[in-house]
Amino acid sequence: MKTGSVLVTGGSGFLAGHCILALLAAGHRVRTTLRSPQREAGLRAALASAGIDPGARLDIVTADLTADAGWAEAVAGCRHVLHVASPLSAAAPKHEDELIRPAREGTLRVLRAAHAAGVERVVLTSSFAAIGYGKPLSRPYAESDWTDPSAPGLAAYPKSKTLAERAAWEFVDGEGTSLELVVINPVGIFGPLLGPDMSASILLVKSMLEGRLAALPRLMFGVVDVRDVADLHLRAMTDPAAAGERFIATAGDFLTMQEIAQALRDRLGPAADKVSTRVLPDWLVRLVARFSAAARQAATPELGRRKNASSAKARAMLGWEPRPAAEALAATGESLIRLGIVPGR
């Protein structure tokens, strides 16, 4: 069944790959962008390994968020766009503009092209990072909350996601009046990998399984399965009530890094023998941060801070029901082992 043409940006990415899988399974014709045509074979192989042969229903075009070339071709004839691609580095950038400029300008580039092509709706993958940083709350964060980009000590990534999403809403409220926008704000995305490309969340689990994190800082994260985030994108794409809305995607209450580690040990058994549940005191993390770049990434204003968020809006409005967090974490570890990225037992 052909249900319309959908563009997914950044097709080789972790979430984008699962969005493509979900769209193909639902009968859509899909087009996706890649920064380099050399990535096409790897993407098609990853999709095939997941049990779906895209055949002629997947078109691939070359386009980069940092340049105009290719975007008119990418959106031509598409009814919907899932703008999933976004710059993210595992290491802290030398300057915050290395993340902020491509995130903001890339988002506007996609929106302008979509508007010019008569696209009906864009679903933008933002992040909880645009909601829950820089402004501590005693209650769970909700879709009405925004990260303060001017907050002292705010890292480049949440600032980039906040400014990019703000720019998207401003564009639609101004120039793009005929274009519908829906924004998904996922917490840390875990779950099964389709290939060797890994997000920051996956790298965290990889480091734990390899025993590279001998002790853990007191940081809290939301957890959600990538398959459920892809499902939420499709619901947001097609439900008339979703237009003009933001949706937080989290499987439940936030977990400490110690709780994440314990979930891996409980679900993976001997394969998680190297996972440490030891917790570092905050003062020691801050002391080590004077000499270690890795520790400086942990010694942020979020260190030791309890926080939470609610996905009640997505559940009530769109009927979204995510998997439990422990299942998402286990699926991450299992796929790392299955792909030979982390040795099994």
Rank of each mutant, 00 (worst) to 15 (best):
G27L: 13
R315T: 14
W169I: 05
G134H: 04
P93N: 15
I131P: 07
A325V: 04
A331T: 00
R112N: 10
V187S: 13
A69C: 05
V182D: 13
E245T: 07
L47S: 10
L232Y: 00
K2Y: 15
D231Y: 00
R296V: 02
L15C: 11
A91Y: 04
G244R: 03
R290S: 10
A271I: 01
A92V: 00
R227D: 00
R44V: 10
Q258N: 07
G304W: 02
H28I: 02
H95P: 00
R166E: 06
V122F: 01
P37F: 14
A230H: 04
V275R: 02
S310K: 10
F171P: 03
L23Q: 10
A116K: 15
A330L: 03
W320C: 08
V279H: 06
L181F: 01
A164V: 05
A243D: 13
F247V: 03
S178H: 13
F14A: 13
H233F: 12
P37Y: 09
P37C: 09
G340M: 06
M1A: 10
L264P: 02
D228T: 02
A142I: 13
W283C: 03
L219F: 13
S335K: 11
W283Q: 02
A151K: 11
G70K: 09
G211H: 12
D231P: 02
P343W: 08
A151E: 13
L264C: 06
G4C: 09
F128K: 11
F247H: 04
T3Q: 14
A167Y: 05
H80M: 04
A26P: 02
T147N: 01
D239F: 00
L287P: 00
A103E: 04
A251I: 05
A116H: 14
L179H: 08
L99W: 11
A151V: 12
T125V: 08
V226M: 06
T332M: 08
Q297I: 00
T125Y: 00
R246H: 14
R57I: 00
P192M: 05
L163V: 07
S160D: 12
A16R: 13
K274I: 01
E143K: 10
V30F: 12
A331I: 01
W169V: 01
R227K: 04
A249P: 07
A167S: 05
A289W: 15
D253P: 10
T277N: 01
P87Y: 08
A241L: 11
T32V: 03
T33A: 12
R323Q: 10
V30Q: 15
L88R: 02
K307F: 06
P158Y: 12
P136V: 04
